[in-house]
């Protein structure tokens, strides 16, 4: 199992993480070792076996399409890093 430098960068971009260039070699080594564990799975014959996503085989329950929650915008926005007039603030996207 080996990860190319370009692959590591692509993963980081997908995950919205920035990798410190100084830490990249150690990180790459750790990720390779962890992914190396996955090779053990080759020992399992999974032909025709359905993937298991929920250990109880539960399915998503449905409920009546009615409003059950109250508006708590102020409480939720009170913990946001930056808000104004009920809106979340982010750096300008459109000039």
């Amino acid at each position: 199992m080996s990860l190319g430098a370009e692959q590591l960068e692509r993963l980081a971009a997908l995950a919205r993480l920035r990798i410190d260039p100084g830490e990249a070699p150690a990180l790459k080594d750790a990720l390779e070792r962890i992914l190396g564990l996955a090779e053990e799975l080759a020992a399992a014959d999974t032909t025709g076996i359905d993937p298991l996503a929920n250990p109880l085989d539960a399915v998503q329950p449905l409920r009546a399409d009615t409003v059950t929650e109250s508006n708590r915008r102020d409480a939720f926005q009170a913990i946001a890093p930056a808000v104004e007039d009920g809106l979340y603030l982010v750096p300008r996207v459109v000039e």
């Binding site: 980081a12 995950a15 962890i34 399992a44």
Partner: peptide
């Protein structure tokens, strides 16, 4: 990063799906 890898296009079947079948 590992999770992103296992779910990414081209690796999903060999990693995530294989792990769920083994599960």
């Amino acid at each position: 990063l590992i999770g992103t890898y296992a779910l990414s296009a081209g690796y999903y079947d060999a990693y995530y799906k294989k792990a769920q079948q083994t599960r």
